[in-house]
Design a protein around this nucleic acid. Structure first.
Lengths: 330, 330
DNA sequence: TTGAAAGCGATACCAA
DNA sequence: TTGGTATCGCTTTCAA
């Protein structure tokens, strides 16, 4: 698109700083100062320019602004695994909250380093790193300098603000519920890397005066197929309930049980993790620990915009008591 | 972030055009020409500069480029309704395909006009409009000038390329399947605005030599609750199967039936639309017409990047035969 | 507190 | 085919 064409065609009249300055009877420099936060300007002028800007609908061009060293109002999001069900929701939520705050979101579904290569030249004002993309060393380098405000989501970071999910607490709460329902032999089905979930699993037992050992673990892939395949081991070990480290596994297991004509929750109880079906349309509605994605999105963006100090919080997932857990059968 | 800080901290060394030009022993103007497509340059120089650019890892700054009138490699996406389940998937798919093509996606979850206000100043190279955001007049104005390559997704546009979903064909195929399974009284449950779906519904009947009338329609909101509420009318009218205009409705109806202790698909067959649970984790797996979101995403971006002529295609959804439809009971 | 002027990094036009 | 130069819109430094 040629330069000229672009301008003529643009259906939205662009009000330029020049125009604004002229209308206000000040120089461009002054107008610019009035709009940015920097203090060196008289109160009166500032207000006049600002209100005029509002009236005229002036919006600084982010490109020019970025090039000159100001804010672009562009927030970068990176992290692979966009295609995971849970990421869908987080992404959408980030996008819509950002938009409501006048920020634009640029997606780079890539690991941190590659993502930065794409995002940094855009002079993004802030970065949101989701889950797996995090490289702590690189993060450290970036953030010790406080150059690029960054928020890490879903894992804890030493070097920058992060909003983690309190998986341990969540799992503890969920498993405690199972115990409360009378279950004594509960399987831990899933990826063995989920240490914090395992901790929560153990705590729940300990708190109830029960003992658990590693033999409660049924290792499997984090997919429906993984859960499906876990059935034999689950059935042969005298379990009456299972906690699955994610919903995909849980539903796989659910389907496997169904194929053998077992009933959930009458015969077995299944508890998942993630809340990918928050709308709870499945049947039975899967009991699960729902990731607080809306909260994460909001906090991340607020922190990027207003945060001055590093914050590291851990947000608990919410126990959704669906229909897939129930009292232990007699 | 101050200008100086930004530069020092940037962990990825930025090679500037200046550097490249110097290394190649040509002017910046020449170097720029060598990289862009425009022909006015000697083959030899072009190749030298290009290979040098590769070696040095030169990446033009998109901001500067955009400001000066070149490509930003930024693609804008607008359209409200991001939080609808189906949009989640489309969005992720767009993001990851765009990324694989070296494009960045900027998302503005807003209707067309507001979206443009946000997106145009970014000098996006192309625009993807999703569903509801489309305003044909505005689109016309934009696109008659061929100024901003635009693709409309999910609806047909006169003025620009569009990739629609062939809802009529899809529904016809799905309903034909129900008819093939022996169903004769099929309900059309959902929003009455879905004309093309209704057409498909009628065609399927007509093709099979059956007649349908408007009394097959059970109007309801496009939500699980809507489907849930449609139960009474469904049961009282002698239907044995239902086509729901979206999956939310379908599952609502499914749950309502379950509460009355009916079995699906033994007692009733339910067919949905959208494929929001493509992973098919629900129980029973909902039979549905899955939106071809991956295809849509790919085609949209390819068209934006390479398309020279307006294309208007209609892509059929895919019939997913889950477990929620079966032979009519005797 | 203000204005003038110098960039930011790249592209596009005009001469040569 | 090339180089010089104006320009894109805005921010920031430097004087006044």
């Amino acid at each position: 698109m040629s330069k000229r064409l672009r301008k003529e065609v643009n259906p939205i009249k662009q009000v330029l700083l020049k125009d604004l300055a002229q209308a206000a009877g000040v120089s461009e420099a002054t107008a610019s100062r009035a709009l940015s936060g920097s203090g060196r300007i008289s109160q009166e002028t500032r207000e006049r320019v600002r209100s005029l800007a509002e009236v005229m609908g002036y919006q600084a061009n982010p490109l020019a602004r970025g090039l000159a060293g100001g804010n672009t109002n562009l927030l970068g999001v990176c992290g692979s695994g966009v295609l995971k069900p849970f990421m869908h929701r987080l992404l959408s939520q980030l996008a819509s909250y950002a938009s409501s705050q006048g920020q634009k979101l640029v997606f780079a579904p890539l690991p941190l380093l590659e993502g930065l290569r794409v995002l940094l030249p855009l002079q993004i004002d802030g970065l949101i790193v989701c889950w797996e993309g995090l490289d702590e060393d690189l993060a450290a380098e970036l953030l010790e300098e406080r150059a690029l405000p960054t928020v890490v989501l879903g894992t804890r970071s030493e070097y920058c603000s992060s909003f983690d999910v309190d998986r341990e607490w969540g799992v503890k709460t969920g498993v405690a519920k199972l115990i409360e329902l009378g279950h004594r032999r509960i399987a831990f089905v899933g990826e063995s890397t989920a240490n914090d979930k395992w901790q929560g699993f153990v705590s729940a037992h300990t708190d109830a005066g029960l003992s658990v050992s590693q033999d409660a673990i049924i290792a499997c892939e984090g997919t429906p197929l993984g859960g499906f395949g876990a059935l034999d081991q689950f059935l042969s070990s005298g379990f009456t309930a299972a906690f699955a480290t994610n919903d995909e596994i849980a539903v796989g297991l659910l389907r496997a049980l169904e194929e053998k004509n077992f009933k959930v929750p009458e015969d077995y109880s299944i508890l998942g993790y993630d809340g990918i079906y928050l709308d709870q349309l499945g049947r039975p509605r899967l009991a699960t620990l729902a990731q607080p994605s809306g909260t994460l999105a909001k906090m991340a963006i607020n922190q990027l915009l207003d945060g001055t100090e590093q914050i590291n919080e851990s947000i608990p997932p919410e126990l959704i008591v669906g229909d897939s857990i129930g009292k232990m059968r007699d």
